[in-house]
């Protein structure tokens, strides 16, 4: 289950947000994508999950080109996307949000088991299961968003800034959970982060995006040690 992106270019009207990006994430690996605001990280993820159409290039997942496949079909092929900024439906309860993640399976029994699984990972969600999700705290909402994504039993998880707006302690927790999930569910993960240090620490691979292009790519530990990356993104 390898994800291979080759020469991907994506435009927003005249703006070129992603420019000739190529990258590979081997099965079971966690790749962190870092880069400054407007580097094209969100655009890249949205293209991978089918929400945005690329102007050029190929995305190969599991050996097949998935460019042009609709997001609702990509979920069925194991790709789950957690959008930027707590991607939950505020009008629905916690339980309904979770059910949403498995709705396409049309198997209520399986859905129930998956909810139990999610609740065992995030016990806080269990305590608030019948609450409307707009009454949750930011951290809880992020847990719910991730919970919804893993409800569909994905093989590729796309996470867009899960640490956004969370307290440092909660950030650490979330990162640890992501790492654990990667191992226990044998996921391939693409983690977009502003918190570059935190992300690289748990990641296997690191990719630095700059102005829509890949600036540096390599093993995460190598990136942490790279002086250029350190000064530009890690701030020391």
């Amino acid at each position: 289950m390898t994800l291979t992106v080759s020469n991907l270019t994506v435009h927003h009207g005249a703006i070129c947000a992603v420019n000739q990006v190529s990258l590979t994430v081997p099965a079971g690996k966690l790749a962190a994508i870092i880069g400054s605001n407007g580097a094209g990280k969100t655009t890249l993820l949205r293209t991978l999950s089918g929400l945005k159409h690329p102007t050029q290039g190929e995305i190969s997942w599991n050996g097949e080109n998935i460019v042009g496949t609709k997001p609702e079909m990509l979920v069925r092929r194991g790709i789950s996307h957690v959008g930027e900024g707590k991607s939950v439906v505020p009008e629905l309860t916690v339980k309904e949000n979770l059910e949403l993640g498995a709705i396409w399976r049309r198997n209520n029994q399986e859905s129930k088991e998956s909810i139990e699984n999610v609740v065992s990972i995030f016990p806080r969600l269990g305590e608030r299961i019948n609450q409307r999700s707009d009454t949750l705290s930011g951290g809880e909402r992020q847990m719910l968003a991730i919970g919804r994504a893993i409800m569909s039993k994905p093989q590729l998880l796309l996470l867009d800034e899960p640490s956004l707006g969370l307290a440092p302690l909660v950030v650490e927790q979330i990162f640890q959970t992501i790492r654990d999930l990667t191992n226990s569910m044998n996921l391939t993960v693409l983690l977009v982060e502003q918190n570059a240090m935190g992300a690289l620490k748990i990641a296997d691979l690191g990719i630095v995006l700059n102005l829509g292009s890949v600036a540096v790519a390599g093993s995460a530990s190598a990136l942490i040690d790279d002086p250029a990356v350190r000064s530009a993104y890690l701030g020391y």
Partner: peptide, 24 residues
């Protein structure tokens, strides 16, 4: 029902609905 959930989710957040595999 699941259909009801799909109807509500698609109404409130079409994008999340699509990402959840609903044919909006």
């Amino acid at each position: 029902t699941n259909i009801g959930l799909a109807l509500r989710a698609s109404a409130y957040s079409p994008e999340i609905a699509r990402l959840s595999g609903i044919k909006v």
